[in-house]
């Protein structure tokens, strides 16, 4: 049984997105949330490149991926900065302690 390259990439995409969502659903640690978000977005990025390749628009998919990389870096940086502040103000990185909506 041979697996074509697009199929392999698709499997990797699904793996990354699946791990990301699973981690987001289960983790309560803010740093881990940011890591999970990174994994998720990397999967989405790979999916963009793959979609560009499959529709014959390699350049479009890749330039979109680069755009996502830039946006995603900013997300990571700001997330980390927020984590530092949360640690300083709240004293813990546990997400449950950040919940203020519940009555």
């Amino acid at each position: 049984m041979t697996i074509s390259i697009p199929t392999a990439v698709l499997i990797i995409v699904l793996g990354l997105v699946g791990i990301g969502i699973y981690a987001l659903l289960t983790t309560r640690h803010l740093i881990k949330v940011i890591v999970a978000l990174q994994l998720l977005v990397k999967g989405a990025m790979l999916a963009l490149v793959l979609a560009g390749h499959l529709t014959g628009q390699d350049d479009l998919g890749q330039s979109l991926a680069i755009t996502v990389i830039i946006a995603d870096t900013i997300v990571a940086v700001i997330g980390m900065a927020l984590a530092v502040q949360v640690r300083r103000v709240v004293g813990t990185l546990d997400l449950r302690s950040l919940t203020s909506l519940r009555r």
């Binding site: 969502i21 987001l24 659903l25 983790t27 309560r28 950040l98 909506l101 519940r102």
Partner: peptide, 17 residues
Amino acid sequence: LRSTQTGVLGWNVAYLV
């Protein structure tokens, strides 16, 4: 419906999914 607004990240992601 207010009880569905837990503010817990895990639940919000679950709704998205």
